[in-house]
Nucleic acid binder design. Sequence first.
DNA 1: GACTATTTCAAACAACCGTTTTAAACTAAT
DNA 2: ATTAGTTTAAAACGGTTGTTTGAAATAGTC
Lengths: 230, 230
Amino acid sequence: MRKLKEPATREPRSAATERRLLEAAGQVFAEKGFRAATIREISQRAGANIAAVNYHFGDKEKLYAATFRHAREACVAQFPLRDEGLNAGSTRDRLGRFVLGLFLRMLDIGRPAWQWQMMAREMIEPTAVLDEMVDEVIRPDFGELQKLVEEITGLAPADERVRRCACSVVGQAMFYRHSQPVVRRLNPSQGFERADLEELADHVTSFSHAALTAMAREGSAKRAGDRAPM
Amino acid sequence: MRKLKEPATREPRSAATERRLLEAAGQVFAEKGFRAATIREISQRAGANIAAVNYHFGDKEKLYAATFRHAREACVAQFPLRDEGLNAGSTRDRLGRFVLGLFLRMLDIGRPAWQWQMMAREMIEPTAVLDEMVDEVIRPDFGELQKLVEEITGLAPADERVRRCACSVVGQAMFYRHSQPVVRRLNPSQGFERADLEELADHVTSFSHAALTAMAREGSAKRAGDRAPM
DNA sequence: GACTATTTCAAACAACCGTTTTAAACTAAT
DNA sequence: ATTAGTTTAAAACGGTTGTTTGAAATAGTC
């Protein structure tokens, strides 16, 4: 049935078409969505035969899962949010780097543009690949942000306000991705080049930092008082 | 060809099926998306014939546009964000009412649940109905929020920070709608009942109000200085 | 009550989808 | 060169889609 020997030297033929297939599938899935995307168009863009998808990936769903995983790994590798070097500096600097990383992941023009479009589609019709992404990327990154919020506010880890503040930070950045068509219509002069993203990240950072430090003041007043952390 | 007289007394037969068709179409479009939704299922749920859609609305796209418009008008009528009575109280109270209104529009269980799912789809593949909604609903509501931000911060209307702050407020609330699958996975205990929405709105309000008042202090320091409002 | 316009119904149409099939082309080791 | 194994190619198969058709049923008017 299958080949038993695995030379593992290099994969010259089939691996190349698989890569072209993944690349084309990412673009088409992002543009059209899973249902509207056709294997015929994907194969055509990849310069492969119609049967190539079923031969290399089994069926359309498995191609979709493989494409999503491929995109996620490329994106995370390009813009890491948790790294040893990211723990240096003041809490304000660390927050700024986290927010800028979010913006670059989501909106940096160039290679991974269509990946977040697939992510947006998963928000509407979640499949198994979303669970995978939450477990392996989003939850750890979100935990890192929560720790940062705890440091700035002095709130206890179990305090629900920590999670809500982290949601507030992420939500501000996410808005420019998931509501981009509205943003572009409300403010056509808003650009999304690298410099624009740095400006937006700066705003979100100072906005959030101001809110967090204010919560630190009021939180410390309450912490000694009636509400006991769980 | 067509009827020339228009009695306009009442439309007993065809209007009823049109309404049932719109209702069913909203649910199916939200669940499956435009492409995956089938006229057969819509007609079946509405208790109408397969040809009814093409007879009453022309084709599938026109049914989609009509459905979106129908949903938008119902939602805006139920939760107005700009009203004479909403201008009373402190700026903090007005901000709180605006944010709570946003949450109720987006997440209040019951009737208009699927409408925002259609909105989310428009964010991915914008059509002409999005332009219509931006012009008639979003831009006026957003302008109201901008005026509120100007009052709290004391910034000039032309200052870009006003728009960015308004985006920060809206983005926090929008996060719980457009990233709801992620929120539910990150925090399964997060509820979306009326009481939960009020809690979330309270958090977003105080978070934003703190950031805005902080910006008011630093803004007034700068306003006397180098940067002149345009 | 007959006549006309409007609405509903069942059936069929052409087009497109994902998938399968079968054979040809290619690679690489004997 | 031959042979086995892997990859590509073209064509066809069911199945589903939006839309159209033409007749039956219903409403309103003289």
